[in-house]
Design a protein around this nucleic acid. Structure first.
Lengths: 120, 120
DNA sequence: CATATAGTTTACCGGAAGGCTAATTAACCA
DNA sequence: TGGTTAATTAGCCTTCCGGTAAACTATATG
């Protein structure tokens, strides 16, 4: 691709992959556990591919335990992405409302039952 | 693609496009002005394409003034991206050092002369 | 050993991304 | 009118992406 940041953003540019990351926020999970919400929409190899993208981007670490591959979230690359965005904070704040307020409204919204594994 | 967030991240997943956004941080610019640092590496139609991606993602707004198309940065979509990242702040903070400190080290680094139009 | 479970690899497909050159549109200027 | 500058469009090519089905590897267990 070219650089780490591009890999990171590219990995994030897919709702399935973002949903996988969201799943891993609540702890380690095996491939089949991760895949479960998506099967019917997608096959297991499909999920494996997405996981590989996330792994390549360094966002997910895959361990091995017998026949299972426990996956864990690795947020390091997100720091660089966040740092990149930080440069634009002033622009975001300047545009109409402040980012902090905006984030507050977003962060305090429902965060409800997450019935569908759509995205995060 | 699917959703706004995906378009945003996809648009950011390219160093040329990030460099274009960085250029626009210092104010409005025409297409040829934007393209100037990249010519030799890329043709004008190539830059136009990248601009269209940014425009589609809503990150850049193209005006018209005679034969020129003054482009401006539109940070709105970045807010959603930042809001998405916010959910992972605690994870980033948990991993070794705090994001705030990390961002401080990044933000206070050189920010030098930007001799090459590599990226941002 | 045989079989079940967990996951990956291979091979294939359609479509989109990113690049180019050449041609075209649009506006200004002389 | 004709020429110049600014930018886009069109057509083509190659590579990558997201998905599949089928075959394979690896580990556990009866």
């Amino acid at each position: 691709m070219q650089d780490d940041l591009s890999w990171t953003f590219a990995a994030l540019a897919d709702p399935t992959r973002r949903a996988i990351l969201a799943r891993l926020r609540s702890g380690e999970a095996t491939v089949t556990q991760i895949a479960e919400p998506f099967l019917g929409r997608m096959t297991l190899p499909g999920v494996t591919k997405h996981l590989k993208v996330l792994e390549t981007a360094g966002l997910v670490t895959k361990g091995r335990e017998a026949q299972w591959r426990p996956c864990t979230l690795n947020p390091e690359p997100l720091k660089d992405a966040a740092a990149w965005m930080e440069e634009y904070r002033v622009h975001m704040e300047a545009s109409l409302d402040r980012l902090g307020e905006y984030l507050k409204t977003v962060t305090t919204t429902p965060t409800t039952t997450t019935p569908e594994p759509t995205d995060d």
